[in-house]
């Protein structure tokens, strides 16, 4: 692990001329003081790891990743041993290059300078429960230590794909955030971060039937204010979103299991198989039986 992420001791984020993956199974407590960060992903390949981003503590476990934006401050403080922090920082130029190429395409990229486009990547800055990204980071750790042919090529491709996916999510998040009627951009960003954190939480807890008050508490908002803001951002109510989460899970179960429709209704918390079928057809355009694998 590095002594510090800001090698030069300057207050600006460090510049990485290539991707950097720091990963170590720590046998003793470890601390890295608060430093400016570049764009990256933080995770724990083993144990629970405590990261402090802009002063706020984020404890990460398996399958969780924290997307950190450039300019944010980062500290690592782990007072216990047997923790396996893993930090992936992207090539400093990559974010702008990828963002620009997605926006304008390869041909324009050759003609248009991109230095004047300071893209904001802070819309994703939070903890994401994403087993796919987590697994990719584990694979990159393996590739770095391994002896497979073309390991660097494979790693570069994996990082590029990972980042393109993140940039697209950031773009979508930015578009959603623009629905918020707020005068100041910083207010809009703060509201968006709270709403999207609550949305992530709903995806993890929809089966428990959470109340509006419980969800609003995750966003640290009054329930009526949260309801209004959620609808502004995603154009549906939190209740409709919970139903959507259940329907998506139901479709997944239908496609991959032999469970009966009644069993699936019970598993995801629908009381009536009839209303489930009606909502399912409305959502996916086909009845549940259509998605059953023969």
């Amino acid at each position: 692990m590095p002594e510090t992420f800001n090698f030069t001791g300057e207050i600006t984020p460090p510049v990485y001329n290539d991707h950097f993956l720091f990963a170590e199974h720590l046998q003793r407590p470890y601390e890295c003081p608060e430093c400016p960060s570049n764009i990256g992903l933080l995770t724990a390949a083993g144990g629970s790891c405590d990261y402090f981003v802009n002063g706020a503590k984020h404890r990460l476990d398996r399958d969780q990743v924290f997307f950190i934006s450039r300019g944010s401050t980062l500290a690592v403080r782990n007072r216990t041993k047997d923790v396996y922090p893993a930090l992936l920082f992207f090539h400093s130029r990559l974010p702008d290059l990828v963002m620009f190429s997605l926006q304008y395409g390869g041909e324009v990229l050759l003609e248009k300078p991109f230095d004047t486009l300071p893209y904001d990547f802070s819309y994703l800055e939070r903890t994401h429960a994403d087993a796919g990204i987590f697994t990719t980071i584990l694979q990159l750790i393996d590739l770095g230590a391994g002896s497979g042919s073309f390991a660097a090529l494979q790693a570069d491709m994996a990082i590029r794909r990972l980042f393109e996916d993140l940039v697209q999510k950031n773009q979508e998040a930015y578009k959603h955030s623009q629905n918020i009627q707020a005068l100041k951009a910083s207010t809009r960003l703060e509201i968006f971060k709270r709403i999207s954190t609550a949305k992530d939480w709903m995806e993890a807890h929809y089966q428990d039937g959470p109340t509006l008050e419980a969800i609003a508490a995750i966003a640290s908002m009054n329930s009526q204010h949260f309801l209004r803001m959620f609808k502004q951002v995603y154009s549906i109510t939190p209740h409709q979103y919970l139903i959507d989460c259940k329907l998506k899970k139901a479709r997944q179960l239908i496609e991959n299991n032999d469970l009966t429709i009644n069993d699936i209704c019970q598993a995801i918390g629908f009381e009536s198989a009839f209303s489930f079928s009606v909502l399912f057809k409305k959502r996916f355009g086909m009845p549940p039986s259509h998605f059953r694998k023969t």
Partner: peptide
């Protein structure tokens, strides 16, 4: 011919192509 490219691509690709 920067250090990173030499390490990752010159050396890595040579090793890869020799096997294949």
């Amino acid at each position: 011919t920067d250090e990173e490219t030499i390490r990752k691509h010159f050396i890595g690709d040579t090793k890869g192509w020799i096997f294949y």
